[in-house]
Amino acid sequence: MTKAGSGVRGPGSGNDMRPAGATGSARKRVAVVIFPGSNCDRDALAAVELVGGDAVPVWHQSADLGGCGAVILPGGFSYGDYLRAGAMAAHSPVMGAVRRHANAGGAVLGICNGFQMLLEIGLLPGAMLMNRTLRFICRDVHLRVERDDVPLLNHLRRGQVLTLPIAHKEGNWFAPAEVVRVVEAEGAVALRYCDERGEVGSAANPNGAINAVAGLVNRDGNVLGMMPHPERRVGALIGGLDGVELIRSLVEAA
């Protein structure tokens, strides 16, 4: 699929989502790590399979990623969000393997609680504070795609507006001013909260995140963390297809 032709408004049926040419070639293996308290692991596994990947569940006590070429840290409430969201999971045995995989250039996608883990282990900068409203927010938001030049966002287009659900209480991204400057200078912001026209502003920022940061990508472009849930938008029956191209990009990067 060419970049110009790739829109998130893809085919209307989940059965049509396998990429052309996937048949016959070896399926890409993507690990989905399951922590005690993960609750989006099944969705992530299903989303990977929908775009033609081979989804491999990996228990958090595992010391390796089962030879997978990419890994998803799924959403949920690992360890009940004790201490800080993602803080306990960040010290699970599997995280050593995730770190090695990332440092070797392997693809890593952290969704929601998984993004919080990536911040806790320092693969991405900053930390999450409680939402400005102090509430758990569970609703659809608009997101502006800020990067399309890295493999993990390969099937998206810069400036494109996605609609994906968020479901979190700690998604108010914070970093010291000097870190924010570096993040912006390096183009590390992959996704920003925006309105339906793609305009960024306080009214369209659900949680108070600095500069409306909804997703970050590391310098090498192989680690992506995001608060919204692409794995929950991979079928018309569950509300839309805006998550498909993100998951597809990850699977292809495996």
């Binding site: 201490l83 306990m88 010290h91 806790e120 930390a127 914070f174």
Partner: peptide, 8 residues
């Protein structure tokens, strides 16, 4: 190492 997050 774990009890506090030095970023915040």
């Amino acid at each position: 190492e774990v009890l506090a997050n030095p970023v915040i």
